[in-house]
Amino acid sequence: MTTEVFGKHKWGMVVDVDRCTGCQACVLACQVENNVPLNTQERYERARGMAWIRVERYWEGEFPDVKARFIPILCQHCENAPCEPVCPVFATYHNPEGMNVQIYNRCVGTRYCANGCPYIVRFFNYWEPVWPESFRNHLNPDVTVRSRGIMEKCSFCMQRIRRGVRNAAKENRELEDGEIQTACQQACPTDALVFGDIDPDNNRTNPGRAYSMINDDRAYTLLPRLNTDPNVIYLAKVDPDREGGAGGH
């Protein structure tokens, strides 16, 4: 056991929509962790804000029978990712750990991948990221700052995964479930986001938290008819007063 065995894990995330309150803690935690540039007013007005994870809000009905539904959307890390085959320089590819990866130094900025993504979770750097000199102090040194012309997206906090795997190998032990937390999961006050290894073989003897949730009755994936086979699993919102929808009852 001297080298880290790469490809042993298959990372995934379970998002419990029923717990999400739309508080935006995950969004900012992600932005801070991953050196995502400041979204200035101008960027928002041009509809070019960046958020590796975002909370979408949908309205249902009219007052007084109105509901606001929140859903956090991040890169789905699809097994059959539409963004991967279109990249002419292999800057995005599927790695053995089940993640859809963006390699910044390979990216030439064709934006084909962003056009291919049905979840719209890829963001393009139209400008050089700019921070006032003093704000550079809080940049995360573990994450590359992307320059202009580069596509970026959720990496499942790759830097935390690498650090966690390395620490386990250093101490010559197995990685524990829940040891690696993504920034969004760490922030989420209602525990709506659960990240972990969802490979069935790795969960046989001691099932992890994320794995035990993916077969929940409420589990679904986004846009399943596109057959993208995402590694982000959602648990449906519960409405105790919902009527008529249920088919089998």
């Binding site: 080298t3 880290e4 790695n95 053995p96 590359t144 990496s155």
Partner: peptide
């Protein structure tokens, strides 16, 4: 040569 991981994400993230 040493069968160490060569996935891009090992060094680039």
């Amino acid at each position: 040569e040493n069968e160490a991981p060569t996935d891009c994400t090992v060094c680039h993230h």
